[in-house]
Write a protein that binds this DNA or RNA. Structure first.
Lengths: 201, 201
DNA sequence: CGGTCGCTTGACGGGCTTCAAATAGCGTGG
DNA sequence: CCACGCTATTTGAAGCCCGTCAAGCGACCG
């Protein structure tokens, strides 16, 4: 078990990929850096999420805690032998990878073809959906454990543009900020329309 | 076995996901449409590529032939029972999914943080690498079975921008067009630099 | 209450898109 | 085999969305 404080890295881009882990508490960000410092956040992790080893060799990304977090490590060998004795796990791994792939495809659509407002609306709906699977479908608000810059780097924008789109969604009455890091969704259907690009109103 | 001519769909976004297939000849494009017609190509398929069922329910994308192609279908049931009798396949499936995930992450970096020239250079290097694994590492050119519009929709650009960046890479002597749909790489290292964003020359 | 850091807001500029037109490529039929 | 016509690609000009730079504001913490 490993405890992490906000900002602490789990591992770095370029480290040899030897272990796998499951997040049990808190939240993490996954990001890749380009040579000149540009950054793309390719995903966030929440409790229950598992990180296997995608490819032999080195990690292609860095993972960092967004807040106080806890995770459980397994050595690659221990994990492999666990799989040997529980072959049904393999199917479960495949299923998880398939879901991640589907999410990655949605993110490619977002990054390739959606405008700034659509990106932020899509992101909020993703977080709302997650909140509802955990807290029940009546939940209408959720936390933002990540900074505006993290959101920007996830959505392929700048922090300024994230701020402006936030202000726009707020101004149109679709969301409300309970605190700086907590969003309440006031008009889910209209938010869905913005996210989908059907937003000529 | 199914033969396809250029432009023919394999299946459409929204079709129930019941079967899996392997491409044996030709090439395919995978794309998602937004409500207003915007399109994101999330990948291309080449001989040997396999498409499993990522998520229960409906396909989230359309697949279409780029040229005359051939593929082999398996019903989901046949495929599942094949897996039952060959459990080692499961690990192979997982490995494939993991590679696709790694590719998806690279594409997210491209779409989120690279400029137009970097995107096109990255794409060409991806195709060159593929060509070299097939034809040998001395290969310096490759075909573009897809249109400029397909490339644009893969890279999150417009076809005009793709044309302009093509002209720029050509003008700088990094590539040459043998024909409209065949690219020769003249300066691989410089192309790598452009792709990585280390290009202040 | 002061200081710091993150967030918001404003003004301006640039890279890519949009709209438009010219050119090239390619299959078809004479 | 060549001319024709259609479509894809290239090139040009103008505009816009978002990025960049800068300043002001607010939240959190000691």
């Amino acid at each position: 078990m490993q405890r992490l404080r906000a900002g602490q890295p789990v591992f770095h881009q370029g480290d040899p990929a030897r272990r796998v882990f499951m997040l049990t508490l808190g939240s993490l960000k996954i990001y890749t850096l380009l040579g000149d410092g540009r950054r793309q956040v390719t995903g966030f992790m929440f409790p229950g999420d598992f990180l296997g080893i995608s490819v032999e060799g080195e990690y292609a990304f860095t993972i960092e805690a967004l807040q106080q977090s806890e995770l459980w490590w397994f050595s690659r060998e221990a994990f492999d032998s666990f799989i040997e004795t529980h072959p049904s796990i393999e199917r479960e791994l495949y299923r998880m990878a398939a879901h991640e792939l589907a999410a990655a495809q949605r993110q490619m659509v977002l990054l390739g073809r959606k405008n700034a407002a659509e990106r932020l609306a899509s992101f909020f709906l993703e977080l709302l959906k997650r909140e509802q699977t955990i807290a029940g479908s009546m939940a209408q608000s959720f936390d933002l454990p990540m900074s505006r810059l993290d959101i920007a780097d996830y959505l392929g924008l700048t922090k300024e543009t994230v701020s402006r789109m936030l202000a726009e969604l707020r101004g149109r009455g679709l969301i409300r900020l309970e605190r700086q890091n907590r969003v309440e969704v006031l008009e889910r259907e209209r938010l869905e329309e913005v996210a989908a690009g059907n937003d000529e109103g």
